[in-house]
Amino acid sequence: MMTFLDSFSFLDDVRRMDTRQLFYQALNFAMIVSSALMIWKGLMVHSGSESPIVVVLSGSMEPAFYRGDLLFLTNYKEEPVRVGDIVVFKVEGRDIPIVHRVLKVHERENGTVKFLTKGDNNSVDDRGLYAPGQLWLQKKDIVGRAKGFVPYVGIVTILMNDYPKFKYTVLALLGVFVLLHRE
């Protein structure tokens, strides 16, 4: 029992903190938040994509990507769209972007391109998923193209979205730890 109580001994540290120390801890916290933001914005500039890292939310690309896998995207405008590319695209009326593979490409002389996608694990193409009456995707629908892959890492985000209480607990614990912990 004693050992368990001992684990909360860091709370004593708080009592001993003076103003200068508190101020330092708060600044430290702000530092972490702003560097995370800087990394994210830096990746956005580097990759040209509005969301350079996405978590796979559906099983439509199994067995390549499972729920919770992480994809790194780029969205360079000059790079042509070709079959076999894994694109992340937005469809009007759907909040969540879709990750699927390009199946057909028709590109005109002036560079306008229309393409059709399909999930590896789906038996039919994506026309049923597009907005009513929409037959093709265009370049403006692309959020990014998958260039890198790391498995499992995104499962934390999925858990957080599925169980909001878990999210707030984790965030609260992290915040308390960063604010109170003293090196």
């Binding site: 042509p80 070709r82 079959v83 005109r108 391109v113």
Partner: peptide
Amino acid sequence: KQLFIYLTAQYETDNNKVNQVVLWDKIIQ
């Protein structure tokens, strides 16, 4: 982990400079 293999037909028409159509694909794990 896996190869996604696809057979593409590429051709040019009066309408389009680049046409690419996937005719067949296969997943090998």
